[in-house]
Design a protein around this nucleic acid. Sequence first.
DNA 1: CCTCCATATGTTATTATATAACAGTCACAC
DNA 2: GTGTGACTGTTATATAATAACATATGGAGG
Lengths: 162, 162
Amino acid sequence: MDPLGFAPHDHRDCKREAMAAAEAHCARHRLNFTPVRRRVLEILLEGHRAMGAYEILDTLRAEGLGAQPPVAYRALDFLVSNGFAHKIERLNAFIACTHPAAAHTPAFLICRGCNAVAEAQAEPTRGMLGAAAKAAGFEIEQAVVEAVGRCPRCRAEAAPCR
Amino acid sequence: MDPLGFAPHDHRDCKREAMAAAEAHCARHRLNFTPVRRRVLEILLEGHRAMGAYEILDTLRAEGLGAQPPVAYRALDFLVSNGFAHKIERLNAFIACTHPAAAHTPAFLICRGCNAVAEAQAEPTRGMLGAAAKAAGFEIEQAVVEAVGRCPRCRAEAAPCR
DNA sequence: CCTCCATATGTTATTATATAACAGTCACAC
DNA sequence: GTGTGACTGTTATATAATAACATATGGAGG
């Protein structure tokens, strides 16, 4: 529920927790958490940033887990469908979910300096967007909210973020 | 300022108004509203929907205004930079701005049935996202807000939107 | 007038992202 | 043991975007 944000923290912890949550969710819903799917989620958690499908594929290939694009895209589809990862449309990239389990509409803060991405919560059906949708008779099913700007670290560096 | 939404209206009017607004803005800011840029905006306004760069390019090519991708992308960059058009990240497509002149953060309602897109207003720095950004020390410069769902027409059709 | 410079366009080639289509594998239900 | 469905492997291709360089064009200043 916390914005988590850009603060330093123990990646090993968040990786372990997220994997455990994914395991549990798959067990409860009879989902097939196969080696490729598991490994892709691990890669995302280890990277702890938005990663392109082909970047992930490079790692899979190096490990003999699949060499062609569909392998990566299928695993990513699975992870995204089940809420273990999200696609950052703005970057054409994927990132592990940092709000395990909670049903949520993610919102992302994308630093244009260092490309770090933080996940926050949004409530698209409230506020101005919800009002506009209601006025237009539009039924919101899903929303993409991505803010681009600068993270604390990059703001602190006096010079512009390149 | 209105959500405009999915209601039928006179396209000729909105095209004329948007072109006039673009003309005026370019004149005031000494911007070069060249034939290609003008024509691309016209194409977007006539299409009155999100269009891919290559779809636009097809029209340009048919009219002898440029045959290669960079021609379309450059014109689109110009239009987006100056607020005459927006990119819909979710669709990798572009759409003419329906809120001429007003400095704004656009939010889009995308129908997954008919692919129609309506432009509304968002205030990303307010609400939950703004609060999360503030808490994280993140400075929002720009935001992408895209809601996917169903427009009134597609909801009215009892059958699922295919 | 002419040259320099900035801006815009034209073109070739390439990179990046994503999916279609079909073949093989494997576990499990019947 | 065999059919069925879910997953993976592979080839090929579609779609989106940009790098790099060549070629106008149209003033600003000498």
